[in-house]
Computed example of a mutant assay.
Amino acid sequence: MKKVKEASGQIYLYLAWVVATVATLGSLYFSEIRGFIPCELCWYQRILMYPMALILGISTFQNDSSGKKFALPMAVIGWCISLYHYLIQKVPGFAEIKPCVNGVPCNAQYINWFGFVTIPFLALTAFSLIILLLTLLSMKQRKQK
Protein backbone atom coordinates (compact mmCIF):
# COMPACT_ATOMS: atom_id res chain seq x y z
CA MET A 1 0.00 0.00 0.00
CA LYS A 2 2.88 2.37 0.79
CA LYS A 3 4.34 1.94 -2.71
CA VAL A 4 1.01 2.93 -4.26
CA LYS A 5 0.97 6.15 -2.20
CA GLU A 6 4.56 6.94 -3.17
CA ALA A 7 3.83 6.26 -6.84
CA SER A 8 0.79 8.51 -6.81
CA GLY A 9 2.99 11.42 -5.71
CA GLN A 10 5.44 10.68 -8.51
CA ILE A 11 2.83 11.75 -11.08
CA TYR A 12 3.46 15.36 -10.03
CA LEU A 13 7.18 14.93 -10.68
CA TYR A 14 6.47 13.29 -14.03
CA LEU A 15 4.09 16.08 -15.09
CA ALA A 16 6.60 18.75 -14.03
CA TRP A 17 9.20 17.02 -16.23
CA VAL A 18 6.74 16.93 -19.15
CA VAL A 19 6.06 20.68 -18.76
CA ALA A 20 9.79 21.49 -18.63
CA THR A 21 10.48 19.30 -21.66
CA VAL A 22 7.65 20.82 -23.72
CA ALA A 23 8.83 24.32 -22.77
CA THR A 24 12.41 23.46 -23.75
CA LEU A 25 11.34 21.99 -27.08
CA GLY A 26 9.01 24.93 -27.67
CA SER A 27 11.78 27.47 -27.17
CA LEU A 28 14.04 25.50 -29.50
CA TYR A 29 11.24 25.41 -32.08
CA PHE A 30 10.81 29.18 -31.93
CA SER A 31 14.53 29.88 -32.27
CA GLU A 32 15.79 27.08 -34.52
CA ILE A 33 12.81 26.43 -36.80
CA ARG A 34 10.89 29.71 -36.81
CA GLY A 35 14.12 31.73 -36.66
CA PHE A 36 13.15 33.99 -33.73
CA ILE A 37 16.27 35.43 -32.13
CA PRO A 38 16.01 35.28 -28.30
CA CYS A 39 16.43 38.51 -26.37
CA GLU A 40 18.51 38.81 -23.20
CA LEU A 41 15.64 37.97 -20.84
CA CYS A 42 14.67 34.99 -23.01
CA TRP A 43 18.19 33.65 -22.55
CA TYR A 44 17.89 33.92 -18.76
CA GLN A 45 14.62 32.00 -18.88
CA ARG A 46 16.21 29.33 -21.06
CA ILE A 47 19.19 29.06 -18.71
CA LEU A 48 16.74 28.14 -15.96
CA MET A 49 14.32 25.96 -17.98
CA TYR A 50 16.72 23.71 -19.90
CA PRO A 51 18.47 22.19 -16.87
CA MET A 52 15.09 21.62 -15.21
CA ALA A 53 14.13 19.31 -18.07
CA LEU A 54 17.22 17.23 -17.29
CA ILE A 55 16.96 17.40 -13.49
CA LEU A 56 13.27 16.52 -13.44
CA GLY A 57 13.75 13.83 -16.10
CA ILE A 58 16.49 12.12 -14.14
CA SER A 59 14.47 12.43 -10.92
CA THR A 60 11.39 10.99 -12.60
CA PHE A 61 13.07 7.99 -14.16
CA GLN A 62 15.06 7.19 -11.03
CA ASN A 63 11.88 7.53 -8.98
CA ASP A 64 13.69 9.99 -6.72
CA SER A 65 11.98 13.26 -5.89
CA SER A 66 15.09 14.89 -4.42
CA GLY A 67 15.58 16.79 -7.68
CA LYS A 68 12.74 19.08 -6.66
CA LYS A 69 15.04 20.87 -4.20
CA PHE A 70 17.03 22.10 -7.22
CA ALA A 71 14.17 22.55 -9.67
CA LEU A 72 11.81 24.51 -7.43
CA PRO A 73 14.16 27.46 -6.77
CA MET A 74 15.05 27.56 -10.47
CA ALA A 75 11.35 27.65 -11.37
CA VAL A 76 10.65 30.47 -8.91
CA ILE A 77 13.52 32.58 -10.28
CA GLY A 78 12.41 31.81 -13.85
CA TRP A 79 8.85 32.77 -12.95
CA CYS A 80 10.01 36.17 -11.71
CA ILE A 81 12.05 36.80 -14.87
CA SER A 82 9.14 35.70 -17.09
CA LEU A 83 6.69 37.92 -15.25
CA TYR A 84 9.01 40.91 -15.58
CA HIS A 85 9.57 40.14 -19.26
CA TYR A 86 5.83 39.85 -19.89
CA LEU A 87 5.22 43.16 -18.11
CA ILE A 88 7.87 44.80 -20.30
CA GLN A 89 5.94 43.62 -23.35
CA LYS A 90 2.43 44.46 -22.21
CA VAL A 91 2.68 47.39 -19.78
CA PRO A 92 4.13 50.52 -21.39
CA GLY A 93 5.63 51.90 -18.16
CA PHE A 94 7.80 48.82 -17.60
CA ALA A 95 9.58 49.02 -20.96
CA GLU A 96 11.42 52.15 -19.87
CA ILE A 97 12.89 50.63 -16.68
CA LYS A 98 15.66 48.61 -18.34
CA PRO A 99 15.47 48.08 -22.07
CA CYS A 100 17.61 45.36 -23.57
CA VAL A 101 20.52 46.85 -25.46
CA ASN A 102 22.08 43.76 -27.04
CA GLY A 103 20.43 42.48 -30.21
CA VAL A 104 16.69 41.98 -30.04
CA PRO A 105 14.77 44.31 -27.69
CA CYS A 106 12.96 42.54 -24.85
CA ASN A 107 9.66 44.24 -25.66
CA ALA A 108 9.56 42.70 -29.16
CA GLN A 109 6.63 40.33 -29.60
CA TYR A 110 7.28 37.58 -32.12
CA ILE A 111 3.90 36.04 -31.36
CA ASN A 112 0.79 37.63 -29.88
CA TRP A 113 -1.92 34.99 -29.90
CA PHE A 114 -5.35 36.14 -28.70
CA GLY A 115 -3.85 39.53 -27.83
CA PHE A 116 -2.04 38.31 -24.70
CA VAL A 117 -0.14 35.05 -25.35
CA THR A 118 3.50 35.91 -26.05
CA ILE A 119 6.64 33.81 -25.64
CA PRO A 120 7.30 35.17 -22.10
CA PHE A 121 3.67 34.37 -21.23
CA LEU A 122 4.24 30.77 -22.35
CA ALA A 123 7.37 30.60 -20.19
CA LEU A 124 5.48 32.15 -17.27
CA THR A 125 2.79 29.49 -17.66
CA ALA A 126 5.36 26.69 -17.75
CA PHE A 127 7.20 27.98 -14.68
CA SER A 128 3.85 28.38 -12.87
CA LEU A 129 2.83 24.81 -13.64
CA ILE A 130 6.19 23.45 -12.52
CA ILE A 131 5.98 25.41 -9.25
CA LEU A 132 2.43 24.16 -8.68
CA LEU A 133 3.30 20.52 -9.42
CA LEU A 134 6.44 20.50 -7.28
CA THR A 135 4.55 22.18 -4.43
CA LEU A 136 1.81 19.54 -4.67
CA LEU A 137 4.51 16.86 -4.59
CA SER A 138 6.03 18.39 -1.45
CA MET A 139 2.63 18.60 0.23
CA LYS A 140 1.87 14.98 -0.62
CA GLN A 141 5.23 13.84 0.74
CA ARG A 142 4.66 15.76 4.00
CA LYS A 143 1.28 14.10 4.44
CA GLN A 144 2.82 10.66 3.94
CA LYS A 145 5.33 11.17 6.76
Rank of each mutant, 00 (worst) to 15 (best):
M74F: 15
I97R: 03
A71C: 11
A95T: 13
V91I: 14
C106P: 05
S65H: 07
V101G: 07
L83P: 09
P120Q: 04
M74I: 04
P105Y: 01
Q89T: 13
G93E: 09
L124Y: 11
L83C: 08
I77L: 04
K69L: 13
I119K: 01
I77H: 00
V101Y: 10
N107R: 03
P92E: 13
Q89Y: 05
A75L: 04
K68M: 06
L124G: 14
C80K: 01
K90C: 05
L87Y: 09
I81M: 00
D64N: 15
L124D: 11
V117W: 10
P105R: 00
Q62P: 02
Y110H: 11
G78S: 03
D64I: 07
I58H: 03
K68I: 11
S82K: 02
F70M: 15
D64V: 06
C106Q: 00
G93W: 06
I111P: 02
A75N: 04
L124R: 08
F114K: 08
S82H: 08
V117I: 15
I58M: 05
W113R: 02
E96A: 15
C80E: 02
A95Y: 01
V91G: 01
Y86T: 14
L72T: 13
T60E: 09
C100P: 01
S66I: 08
F114I: 12
C100Q: 05
S65Y: 11
P92T: 10
P99F: 00
I88G: 02
W79K: 02
V104T: 10
N107D: 14
A75T: 11
N107F: 03
N107A: 12
F114Y: 12
P105L: 00
V104Q: 03
F70P: 09
G57S: 09
I81H: 00
V76D: 01
S82G: 14
S82L: 04
K90H: 13
V104D: 00
C100V: 05
K68G: 12
C100S: 13
L124S: 08
C106N: 05
I97T: 12
S66M: 08
T118Q: 06
I58C: 06
F121M: 14
C100M: 01
M74A: 14
A71T: 12
I58T: 05
L124M: 13
Q89P: 07
Q109C: 09
A108H: 08
G78Q: 03
L72N: 06
I97K: 03
N112S: 13
T118I: 09
A123N: 15
A123T: 14
I119L: 12
G57E: 05
A108N: 10
I58F: 14
L87T: 13
N107T: 14
I88Q: 11
F70S: 15
K68Y: 06
I88W: 00
S66H: 12
T118V: 15
P105H: 01
L72R: 12
P120Y: 02
P99C: 01
A75P: 08
S65F: 08
D64K: 11
S65L: 02
H85N: 11
F121G: 09
W79D: 02
I111R: 00
K69S: 06
S82A: 15
S65Q: 07
Y84D: 01
F70K: 12
L72A: 12
N63C: 11
N112R: 07
K69R: 13
G67E: 04
